[in-house]
Design a protein around this nucleic acid. Structure first.
Lengths: 221, 221, 221, 221
DNA sequence: GATGAATGAGTTTTCATTCAT
DNA sequence: AATGAATGAAAACTCATTCAT
């Protein structure tokens, strides 16, 4: 991945140093949001990025602008991961699903915010991107179902839920160990997706039901 | 569960009204920490508990004292859930494991903090309790292995990781739907624990490796 | 000095435990006021006295009541010291003056407040007592002047100023050393009071000028 | 004295407006500490300095940083006064000593804190400066002794004690009258320093004994 | 008479945000 | 474009005071 972030193409090209600062701010924002939540002090983010707080404000006029860019970057990655998984799905769809989930775990530093539980995306770009992901996952599952490689009642929401959960920070563990644990978790989960001996799953809320609730932000965090 | 909270027995008995306030403060703290993180404003907790902020401070001299009591209460529940699961393990050990995980999901309001990723427990009581949980889970797994009901490489840490992940708040969803999604997730995960067709799991960090890192708190949150 | 404090005779006799508490509160108040000023937390005084804050409030309805009692006790001591000095003045008036000042230094724990720089006395009793002290000191000086034992321009205010200064806490020094330094200081000062080779002193504000200003309290401290 | 304060040279140069604010904060701190003690509300200091409380915090991260700078400024003045006194000592050493003490009284607004009884200096700079003062006073006394102008047993500590006492605020008196009283006091004290008829002084704690105790701060005040 | 408890009103400290350099 | 500086507003924490036991 390059240092340019999603959605940047609309904007006038930044001076080299400004672009570097912007990237550093976003990187600092991601790790800080992961550790302290999206209510984390902006000072702290600026400090970690090595820039003055006023520089952060010049790039992102308010907290939400920063949060939304982080969200958008996350959705971009998520979308890309789903597309890439779809490419390999015809050969081994379950491996493709597992690869998709493991990639989310690996890149979860970039993904803190966009999954269930993150802030509601409010930019047009992010909302559109979000809408394009579920169909891709549905398609991924369709491949697997067609080959009898998966229990028939698994849904895109189950994959998103798993991504959301497995990407959550386990903040008191070093990266390596947290990744190892999350990887094992995904591994077992994917084994549970196989059809042999699968029990019937309890009912899932529909995507529509979920969407209704994804529009209101209960808090700043 | 009674309204008395863990560890209270050491302390001089509180007056009835004070005990009520204390319980309300802890309940408010749990929901607030879930929603806003452990850096949440203490005012907010006091407001939700219906007491003055100074009353909160009288009971809990600083934020950490409150956090630690919430952690302790969580470990108490976790310990009890493990013990109860062990009671039913002889009949159907996998059902006991699933019941254990689903109980954590159901009672996750009380469990926000004590699992991996929560604040490091610093009180003697909490540390002791924490240390007693892994052996119980090991015993639970031993039952399942003895009956050939589970893949042999699953560890207590896998169960704790799953509990930690599945209990994480999905804050933009109403309780009911979040519970439904987490329940399905656990269901699939438990199916993945069965031995038939299980692939070999990647390596797990050992309990010792993990313990080393659970002693330092990178931040207040 | 007994454990009864000045002005107590007006009040109904206290129960033995209450009297003990009252004395402990006053002792704690004196040391606390010396260390932290009269704005010191009343909690702290109650804590040092080993009683509940509400008990302090029962004895002294507000901070000023406590301060005034400490002031009154101080004036009582000051008055007594002046009277005692006067008794020995005929033999050696300069020794009497020195004895007076050194006694103030020794008992300065009880004297923190009543001298120049302390809170303005507002109770009738304290004001009366205060008014009786200057004449006693004037008489003491008259003896000394009559015997040619002192420079003629020294005034009661000079003695009070010296008492006020020498009684000030030097809080980072242990009692013993602070007393030693103050004792030497008084010693040298009294040598400076002798008439031989005395230079003329600069003008003193009159007692009347000073009195005017002693009626307003610039702050709570 | 210029508007720059001691120790500033280490720091990056402040912007002109910031330097002005800093000086105003220190001036306000000095008068406020004199009146209310070092536990005085920092709001009050900010208010008197005409700046926002947050501006005060930007310059001085906590109360102690402010206190220490005031201490340091005081030591700087004290050191300078001792050096200046030494310049005039050869002609009339006793006048030099008296001038030294009277200068402290006159400038006592700047000197509230650094003498015995003030907060223990904790910065390297202040400790060094403090250590350089006693030898200067010893030299001053040596001149006086060499000319037979002073009682032989007077020590630097006696001068420091006198400075400490004479500089103490007499807060219920207007400056002018407090100065007049302190001036008379110093005058008499210096007369007491002369050798003629001097009695032997009681023992003094040594400088070493005192130093031991000057390293622990019994309280914030 | 004494105390545990509660609270309202501070004071301290931090943070988001804007402005001047 | 970036930063040092300032500030108002919020949050953390303390204290004086009163009440109920």
């Amino acid at each position: 991945m390059t240092s340019r972030t999603a959605g940047e193409s609309d904007r006038p090209r930044l001076r080299a140093d400004a672009a570097r600062n912007r990237a550093q701010i976003l990187a600092a924002a991601r790790t800080t949001f992961r550790e302290l939540g999206t209510a984390a002090p902006l000072d702290e983010i600026a400090r970690r990025a090595g820039v003055n707080i006023a520089t952060l404000y010049r790039r992102f006029p308010d907290r939400n602008a920063l949060v939304q860019q982080v969200v958008l970057d996350g959705f971009t990655l998520l979308h890309q991961a789903a597309r890439d998984a779809l490419d390999t799905a015809p050969q081994d769809p379950l491996a493709a699903i597992e690869g998709f989930l493991l990639r989310l775990v690996e890149e979860r530093d970039t993904l803190v915010l966009p999954l269930i539980g993150g802030p509601v995306p409010t930019t047009r770009e992010a909302v559109e991107l979000q809408g394009r992901i579920t169909p891709l996952l549905e398609e991924l599952l369709a491949h697997a179902r067609a080959q009898g490689a998966i229990r028939p009642d698994a849904t895109p929401m189950d994959l998103i839920t798993t991504g959301a959960l497995a990407c959550r920070p386990l903040p008191y563990l070093p990266e390596e160990q947290a990744t190892a644990l999350a990887t094992r978790h995904v591994h077992i989960f994917v084994d549970g997706l196989r059809p042999n001996g699968a029990r019937t799953l309890p009912a899932s809320p529909t995507h529509e039901e979920l969407s209704i609730h994804l529009q209101t932000d209960p808090s700043r965090s």
